[in-house]
Every structure is written in structure tokens, then in C-alpha cells.
């Protein structure tokens, strides 16, 4: 218990250092540049204390639950017994890891669909487009994008291909789509890439990638372990741009058939 409390106190101290800059910036600007006293100092202070405790608990919980969970899933889904392969077999075809891709896709789809910031973005998109884009349609499009992205990322780790080629290919697709997409949706589409990867999803997905790179023979976590988040932030852009284009095309067609 004592050991645990010292650990916790140390973690709390480290978190203090982490939120110090933003606290200093906000309060400093408030007092020095705007030159108004804080409207509600007591509430602000308790708020900062909550943030402090919150981050500490969150990080502690990540270490205890989400990181081990991601690695556990990765290792359980790649054991030779589970794959039905002979443990001595040196080469394993990438098709053997089908469940890994299914798991990666499910995690991507489920977490994105439930992501609150994506909901906010989707509602804004519906407003911007004047109803051409539906909030629900957009959310499903982005979720499918993330699911596909993470599954493709898992495939990359299993096969050990270069991350670079995948990302460059993705960028080229985005560039071509940007040329043809309705102008008003572009900023929103680019933003959606950053929005979909939330504080809870990132650690689990990272742990999954690192776990895969550790357990799949011939992979090195240092070289292959990262990169899943990159896929998860690239594919929503493609999904939103595609959805916007399809929605516009459909509404144009409907309009022209009316007259």
C-alpha cells in the first residue's frame, strides 16, 4: 500500500509538471495581456485540481488496463495454437492472421462510431452542406474508413511492408480527391483525420500494434510497431471526401431528374 501511494504521489507530481505550461499560459495571458482578474478563481482552481487528479488516474489506469489489454489481444490472436499452425513452421502466410484484421477493424469501427467529437463534426458537416450530407451517413463513412485503415495497418505490421509507401499512396489519393471535392468540405475533411483518434482509442491501438510487432516472428517493435494511428488518421479524410462527393453527385442527379 505504501509503495502504491508513493508511486501515485510521484505520478501526481509528474502530472503537475505536465499541466503547468497550459495553466501558466492561460493565467499569464489573462493577467498580463487581457488584464482582468480571473472571474471565478475558486472554481478555476478546483478545476485544475480535477484535471491533475484526472490525468494521473487515467495514466495509471492505462498502464494497468488498456496497454496490457491491447498487448494481450495481440499475443493471444497470434499464438501458433490459435492460428492452427505448427509452432516450428518458420514462414507463416499473412492470410493466417485473419482474426487479427477482423479485431483491428472491429475496434476501429466501434470506437469511431461512438466517438463524441466525431458526432460534433458530423452535425457541423450537415449544417455546412445544407443537408446534402447526413450526420449519420458521415459517421458510418468515417467509421468504415477507420476500420479499414486499422485493418490495413495490422496487415502492414504482419507483412512488414514499408509504412512509407502506404502513407504516400494514401496522400496521393487524398490529393486527387481534394481536386474534385466540394470546396466547403475540405477543411472539415482534413480535420476529421485528427478528430477520430481519441484519448482512449490511441493507447489501445498503439498497444495492439506494438504487441503484434513483438509476437509476429521476424518483426521488430522499433521498426514495425508504430503506424496504426497514422492509418487511423488518414482514412477518415478519404472517407469524408468520398462521402461528400457521392452525396453531392446523388443530390445533383436527383435535382436534374426533377426538372
Amino acid at each position: 500500500m505504501i509503495e502504491w501511494s508513493t508511486d501515485f504521489a510521484l505520478a501526481l507530481l509528474a502530472t503537475c509538471r505536465d499541466i503547468l505550461p497550459i495553466a501558466a499560459i492561460i493565467i499569464g495571458f489573462q493577467l498580463l495581456v487581457i488584464r482582468k482578474p480571473l472571474a471565478n478563481p475558486k472554481k478555476t482552481l478546483t478545476g485544475f485540481l480535477y484535471v491533475l487528479l484526472g490525468i494521473t488516474f487515467f495514466l495509471e489506469g492505462l498502464e494497468m488496463a488498456l496497454f496490457p489489454l491491447g498487448k494481450l489481444m495481440a499475443s493471444q490472436l497470434t499464438t501458433p495454437e490459435f492460428l492452427g499452425l505448427n509452432p516450428d513452421q518458420e514462414t507463416r502466410p499473412w492470410q493466417a492472421y485473419a482474426w487479427v484484421y477482423v479485431f483491428a477493424a472491429s475496434i476501429g469501427f466501434a470506437t469511431t462510431l461512438a466517438e463524441p467529437s466525431l458526432l460534433a463534426v458530423a452535425i457541423k458537416a450537415e449544417q455546412i452542406s445544407g443537408g446534402t450530407i447526413h450526420a449519420w451517413g458521415l459517421r458510418i463513412a468515417v467509421s468504415i474508413g477507420v476500420a479499414f485503415g486499422i485493418a490495413l495497418g495490422a496487415f502492414r505490421i504482419v507483412t512488414g511492408n514499408e509504412l512509407y509507401y502506404f502513407i504516400v499512396a494514401g496522400y496521393i489519393v487524398v490529393l486527387i480527391q481534394t481536386l474534385f471535392a466540394p470546396r466547403m468540405i475540405i477543411g472539415l475533411a482534413y480535420d476529421s483525420g485528427g478528430v477520430t483518434t481519441s484519448t482512449v482509442t490511441v493507447p489501445l491501438v498503439t498497444a495492439l500494434g506494438l504487441g503484434l510487432a513483438e509476437t509476429v516472428p521476424g518483426r521488430n517493435p522499433l521498426l514495425d510497431g508504430f503506424g496504426l494511428i497514422a492509418f487511423a488518421s488518414l482514412f477518415p479524410i478519404i472517407a469524408v471526401l468520398s462521402y461528400a462527393q457521392i452525396a453531392q453527385w446523388l443530390s445533383n442527379r436527383r435535382r436534374s431528374s426533377k426538372y
Partner: peptide, 28 residues
């Protein structure tokens, strides 16, 4: 340990967001 950690994550996230809404967000 997994369950305990999950509870920590939920509690941490709650305090964190509550705190943000009380201090950083309105000011910022």
C-alpha cells in the same frame, strides 16, 4: 488488475473532463 485499471481510466477521464470544463475551457 484489468478491471481496476478500467475503473481508473473511467474515473480519471471523468475528473479530467469535469476539470477542463470548469477551468481551462471557459477561460481559453
Amino acid at each position: 488488475s484489468l478491471i481496476m485499471g478500467t475503473l481508473f481510466v473511467i474515473l480519471g477521464l471523468t475528473l479530467f473532463i469535469q476539470g477542463l470544463e470548469q477551468s481551462l475551457f471557459p477561460l481559453g
